[in-house]
Computed example of a mutant assay.
Amino acid sequence: MKKWITGLAASSLLVLGLAGCGTSNDSASSDNDKLVVSASNVPHAEILEEAKPILKKKGIDLEIEVAQDYIIPNKALATKRVDANYFQHVPYLNSVLKDNPSYKFVSAGAIHVEPIGIYSKKYKSLKDLPQGGTVVMRDAVSEQGRILSIFEQQGVIKLKKGVDKVDAQIKDIVDNPKKLKFKANVEAGLLPQVYKNDQGDAVVINANYALDAGLDPVKDPIAVESTKDNPYANIITVRKGDENKKKIKELVAVLQSKEIKDFIKEKYKGAVLPVSK
């Protein structure tokens, strides 16, 4: 498994390198009627495509830059190549800001939630996982608490008493009767392939990558996180101060409108849920 994942990681780095070859001079348009947004392919870019004609009627020409990873959108925002990005939730953004003090980003508004799922080709529930089983996760500390909370809610592990579930990490597990091995060492976009190749007893996959890989995030997982009081809503991220710009406010308003909410509900059948605003 280690060799296989290493190969995948190398491929991912190559893609990242090629995708990041633009220069900071390719700044977003300052034209009042143009708005450039970097977004993940599914569902973010699809949702933006649905919003595009609505924004056009409001005099805003929306341009969408599709990103294949979670690094490029924030780099593009920092270098002013785009006006906003749409792919991350607040806990992830906070971790990015902690690691990159020069980034001055804020949320302009929450749009949707993608319930994260745990997949397995061998087992039908988390309680069926074997002694010493391996759980393959995304290589992001900001997601660990989110994932471990599912295992705790299912009674498979216990986390340290009093720990904030959003900030919880693998090291905060205090009871693990099955001695499960949580491996947070795979880039998010590669997790569907890890699952399809039956690597690991369980694989945790973000809904956007599951959809992009042809999986059903509602029917296929053996466990899915709760959406009640979920802090992981995907947001429109902008440079601090830009959240008050008219075209950013219009973008958020359209994405939070009934028309777009109905589109999300109909297209994604519960795999993606609009925020309840």
Rank of each mutant, 00 (worst) to 15 (best):
S120H: 06
V96H: 01
N32V: 01
E225R: 07
E114M: 15
D242E: 11
Y70G: 01
A19H: 05
V194P: 08
D216G: 13
A19F: 00
A202L: 02
D139Y: 03
S102R: 13
Q154Y: 15
D83C: 00
S24G: 10
K219Y: 02
M1P: 03
V204N: 12
P53N: 06
L215Q: 05
E187G: 08
N176A: 01
V82G: 01
A271K: 13
F105V: 11
G133W: 00
K269C: 03
A110Q: 13
P130V: 04
S12F: 07
V252I: 04
A28G: 09
N32S: 10
L13H: 03
V90N: 01
V136A: 00
S257C: 05
G162H: 11
V156Y: 14
K34T: 14
P91I: 12
I236L: 05
D31W: 00
A168Q: 07
G22D: 09
E152F: 04
F105L: 08
V136H: 07
Q144P: 12
D201Q: 02
L255W: 09
L215K: 01
A51S: 07
G132T: 03
G132P: 08
I5N: 02
T227S: 11
Y268T: 13
V238A: 12
Q153F: 00
G17N: 06
Y86E: 11
L16C: 02
E63Y: 04
N230D: 14
V37C: 04
S30D: 08
I47N: 06
A10D: 07
V224R: 15
V15L: 10
L77D: 09
G241T: 04
V186Y: 13
G20C: 03
S27E: 10
E152W: 02
W4T: 05
S149C: 02
A78L: 15
A45S: 08
S102P: 01
D198S: 14
Y92F: 14
E152V: 09
S107F: 08
N25Y: 06
S257I: 10
V166I: 15
L180I: 07
K267T: 15
I54S: 09
P192I: 07
Q199F: 04
A210R: 06
P115Q: 09
M137T: 00
V194N: 06
D212H: 05
S102L: 04
A168F: 11
I54E: 11
E114Y: 02
L273M: 13
K181T: 14
I60A: 12
V224E: 04
L159G: 12
K98I: 03
G59Y: 04
V174K: 06
F87P: 01
A39Y: 01
Q193C: 00
T6Q: 11
I170L: 13
D26S: 08
V272M: 12
S142Y: 10
L126Q: 10
T237F: 00
V136T: 13
K3C: 01
V66C: 01
I47R: 06
S27L: 02
D31S: 12
N85Q: 07
I71N: 13
D33S: 14
D69E: 10
L255P: 09
G133R: 02
S38Q: 01
P217K: 05
P231N: 03
S11T: 08
A108K: 13
P274N: 13
L126I: 10
A45I: 02
E225I: 03
L129T: 03
K277M: 01
D212M: 02
G59K: 03
L273Y: 05
K121G: 06
D262Q: 14
D262T: 15
V136I: 14
V272I: 14
Y92A: 02
V113A: 06
E50I: 03
A76P: 00
I205G: 07
